[in-house]
Amino acid sequence: MVSKGGKIKSVIVSLFALNIFIPTALGLSFSQESSPELGQLKGFKGSELCRVAENTRYYLETQPQDHFAVHPGKMINNQVTMDKVQQTLAFICRTYREDVRAKRNSRLHDKAFLTEHFRFVRWLPDKKTATEIAGKSSNAAKSRMLNGIPEDEIFLTKYYTKLLDGSPVKTGQYDQALYALPEDEQGLSLAQAEGKKEQLTRFRFSRQQVIAGALLKDKLAKPLVWLTEEALHDVLLQGTGVLKVDGKIRYFNVHRNNGISYDYSIGKREQPRYWYFVETPEIMGYGHDQPSKIAIKPQVTFAGNIAALGVGKLIMVSYLDNNQQVSRLGILADQGGAFDNNLFQLDLLVDSYRGWSDYHSHNAHLPDYARAWILLLK
């Protein structure tokens, strides 16, 4: 007769043998699925997926010291390695390029091809944490969405880069700046800055203090561009601003923050967290410091809990779109403060829009929840 404890031990051993992902909390969050039910593969371009896969793979190869993000996944057993993650990303581009040279339809949009070449690890959400956050939130809509997460689907939010107007100088309308790193931190690496944080301007002020003019008085930081206060809150939330300034489109990306954590339970205007920015040639995703950040593309980039999952995971989500089952691929190549201790949500980068109505008209068909898998090359 096998004891109850012996049965549990036997089950756990069996799960490891099957490459099952074991979470730190009670119950399984990730498990291998041999025959996933997929929909029509659409909503993404193989060329863009390849670009993000290539950029992310380069990050993995050149930034091995970034232990926060460069790892197989905190809950993955030792049969999943960084080599396997990189092979998965390389396979994406190899497949895309072979199809282009052969002048055939993309096999990345072929369900049979994907199930033949990839292992599918089903992701079930951490509903316990989502419910706890919902109970603390003062935002009724947010609480309702978090409480509504199904047992077998993640919360699939969407984010976009804000198309905004700006000014090279301060005006009555454009009276808030995106600031570069303060002058006393210019030239310091991230590690050097962390070593003397108690002396640096960056850690002294909250968002509200900066908005009130704390940096202007003694010219502690250089304004990169000026925008409205409402636009500033949007850019701080989304991490990227796409601004039309004097008729030209310019990109601005978060650089380093003031060390205050994002509070999921309060709104964007109340957040004390503040980011300093840098101008970039395109939209940038994750990177441990600005020079290393990954260039990302809409429709094929997910933001999520990189600390737990590891940057560079190939992810598939599946959902109903106008009564049709749709599946799509993307790369985990971005993050945000909302994903700290969050394994119930992914954020899909959709595009650049002027505002909510523009965004909503293009994305109203996308659902709030979706089944999700992490894909690994067999």
Results as ranks from 00 to 15, higher is better:
residue 1 M to H: 14
residue 1 M to F: 14
residue 9 K to V: 13
residue 9 K to M: 13
residue 9 K to A: 14
residue 10 S to K: 14
residue 11 V to A: 12
residue 12 I to S: 04
residue 13 V to H: 12
residue 16 F to T: 02
residue 25 A to T: 14
residue 25 A to G: 14
residue 28 L to C: 13
residue 33 E to I: 14
residue 35 S to W: 05
residue 39 G to C: 04
residue 40 Q to N: 12
residue 41 L to S: 00
residue 46 G to E: 09
residue 47 S to K: 07
residue 54 E to S: 15
residue 58 Y to E: 14
residue 58 Y to Q: 15
residue 61 E to H: 01
residue 73 G to C: 02
residue 74 K to W: 11
residue 76 I to H: 02
residue 78 N to M: 08
residue 83 D to R: 15
residue 85 V to K: 02
residue 94 R to I: 07
residue 98 E to V: 13
residue 99 D to C: 09
residue 100 V to K: 13
residue 108 L to H: 03
residue 117 H to I: 01
residue 118 F to K: 09
residue 118 F to E: 03
residue 121 V to E: 06
residue 121 V to N: 09
residue 124 L to G: 00
residue 125 P to C: 03
residue 129 T to P: 02
residue 130 A to Q: 10
residue 130 A to G: 11
residue 133 I to N: 11
residue 136 K to G: 04
residue 140 A to I: 15
residue 145 M to P: 01
residue 146 L to Y: 01
residue 146 L to P: 02
residue 148 G to L: 00
residue 153 E to F: 06
residue 154 I to R: 02
residue 157 T to D: 08
residue 163 L to F: 03
residue 165 D to G: 05
residue 168 P to M: 03
residue 175 D to V: 01
residue 175 D to M: 04
residue 180 A to R: 09
residue 183 E to R: 12
residue 189 S to K: 01
residue 190 L to Q: 15
residue 190 L to W: 14
residue 199 Q to L: 13
residue 202 R to Q: 15
residue 203 F to E: 11
residue 205 F to N: 07
residue 209 Q to G: 00
residue 211 I to W: 00
residue 218 D to H: 05
residue 229 E to F: 03
residue 236 L to C: 06
residue 238 Q to D: 02
residue 239 G to T: 08
residue 246 D to T: 11
residue 246 D to W: 05
residue 248 K to L: 12
residue 249 I to F: 01
residue 252 F to Y: 15
residue 267 G to Q: 08
residue 270 E to L: 02
residue 275 W to L: 06
residue 275 W to M: 10
residue 276 Y to T: 05
residue 278 V to C: 10
residue 278 V to P: 05
residue 280 T to N: 08
residue 285 G to M: 14
residue 287 G to I: 13
residue 292 S to L: 04
residue 297 K to M: 04
residue 300 V to C: 00
residue 306 I to M: 08
residue 307 A to C: 11
residue 308 A to Y: 12
residue 318 S to E: 10
residue 323 N to C: 07
residue 326 V to F: 05
residue 331 I to E: 00
residue 332 L to E: 00
residue 332 L to K: 04
residue 335 Q to G: 14
residue 339 F to I: 09
residue 339 F to N: 06
residue 345 Q to V: 00
residue 347 D to R: 12
residue 348 L to P: 00
residue 349 L to N: 03
residue 353 Y to V: 11
residue 360 H to E: 13
residue 364 A to R: 14
residue 366 L to C: 05
residue 369 Y to F: 13
residue 374 I to R: 08
residue 374 I to W: 03
